[in-house]
């Protein structure tokens, strides 16, 4: 991370966030005090064992759920339980099958009341960068999984909200497509420098893409470790072979293994 970014204002701040499910009699704590920061123009990843409440955390940020305690601040303002402040990319592309690709891509802007012509212009520009030129009028079911995922990413990129929340966006793709998508995302992101909160359980992916990584513990999850990723930008995939990268990867892998071991034997994870 360079100095410019260090001084960038805080975009999103979570402080002491807690959330339990299952009523008062037998509460099941899922988020047990998560605090983290995303600065403006920073790429932040969250990694953690499966069932560490990553999706729940996103639902809290998106305002679908209200935290039991703690604060979610966006640009310094508390937004607990408020919707419509973020761009979002879900695990499945969730493109609407009855909309053409370009109509899908502008959906977020449409919902937020942006003028259609402007949105379409912007959409065409980014679709070209996503290798989707010529597919503007195609329907999603005619596209490959990777292309659908790129369309979903462009949709979140076009969101009028600066902060993008990406929820394990590549987890449903095969390994090859996945690494292609990572390189592509890296490229696009370094060009746009949006504030990103990225959830993944893929350590290498997190190291390749992020400025900062938070490691979540098993349930009830806390942000137990913050790691600044030292590689300079613009990054290329080659950094994955440097000794520095490998040692960071080993460190993270050990951390994750330990957490995973601690959390097995617990009741099955609440996932959605």
């Amino acid at each position: 991370m360079n100095d410019r970014e260090k001084e960038a204002p805080v975009k999103l701040e979570l402080s002491g966030l807690r959330k339990s499910f299952g009523g008062k009699r037998k509460p099941l704590p899922v988020i047990g005090g998560v605090s983290l920061q995303v600065r403006k123009g920073e790429f932040v990843s969250l990694i953690g064992p499966s069932g560490s409440g990553k999706s729940t955390l996103f639902h809290l940020i998106g305002g679908l759920l209200k935290p039991d305690s703690g604060e979610i601040r966006l640009d310094g303002r508390v937004i607990n339980g408020e919707r419509g402040h973020i761009g979002y990319m879900p695990q499945q592309p969730a493109l609407f099958p009855w909309r053409t690709i370009e109509d899908n891509v502008v959906l977020d802007r449409e919902v937020n009341g942006a003028p259609r012509r402007e949105s379409l212009e912007e959409a065409r520009r980014w679709m070209e960068r996503a290798g989707l030129a010529g597919f503007e009028k195609a329907y999603p079911h005619t596209l490959s999984g990777g292309m659908q995922q790129r369309a979903a990413f462009v949709r979140s990129l076009l969101s009028p909200h600066e902060l993008m929340c990406l929820d394990e966006p590549f987890s449903a793709l095969d390994a090859f497509t996945r690494s292609e998508m990572q390189a592509w995302l890296l490229d696009i992101w370094e060009e746009t420098r949006r504030s990103v909160l990225f959830v993944t359980h893929h350590i290498e992916e997190a190291l390749l893409l992020s400025d900062t990584i938070y490691v979540l513990s098993g349930r009830p999850s806390e942000a137990m470790r913050r790691i600044e990723v030292p590689f300079p930008r613009p990054r290329r995939e080659e950094i994955t072979e440097t000794p520095e990268f490998l040692s960071l990867r080993r460190e993270l892998t050990n951390l994750m293994k330990e957490e995973q071991r601690k959390s097995t034997g617990m009741p099955s994870a609440r996932q959605n």
């Binding site: 919707r83 879900p90 919902v111 969101s159 959605n272």
Partner: peptide, 9 residues
């Protein structure tokens, strides 16, 4: 899709 719509407000 429903979740997506809610998340984007």
């Amino acid at each position: 899709m429903l979740n997506y719509m809610r998340m984007i407000g």
